[in-house]
């Protein structure tokens, strides 16, 4: 698998570290809110799709940026790479 890093160019999978489900990480509950069920969902609930999946990968062996990557879990085809946290 080759991941096109927006900073470093197309780089081999071995330079990257998987950091979790991007949509889940983006939905981190408001820390001031004490709604236990939303925190439970954030920490433990994950989808397991066969198909496109938004993920956070860190270019750990490169620029160290975290990237939001849409990867097809069946074919490993990467269809989108963006910066996480960027306003849509």
């Amino acid at each position: 698998m080759i991941i096109p890093c927006p900073f470093c160019g197309p780089r081999d999978l071995s330079e990257f570290a998987y950091c979790g489900d991007a949509d889940n990480l983006a939905a981190r509950p408001d820390p001031a809110a004490s709604d236990q069920s939303s925190w439970n969902a954030f920490v433990y609930d994950r989808t397991n799709p066969a198909g496109d999946h938004a993920e956070i990968w860190q270019h750990a062996g490169g620029c160290r940026r975290h990237l939001r990557i849409v990867r097809n879990t069946v074919t490993h085809a990467i269809s989108d790479v963006t910066m996480p946290g960027a306003k849509a």
Binding site: C19, I56, R64, M83
Partner: peptide, 14 residues
């Protein structure tokens, strides 16, 4: 280190 970077990149990019 990775944890701090994740927090800054993903949770609190501002």
């Amino acid at each position: 280190m990775s944890h701090l970077e994740l927090c800054l990149d993903v949770h609190w990019p501002d």
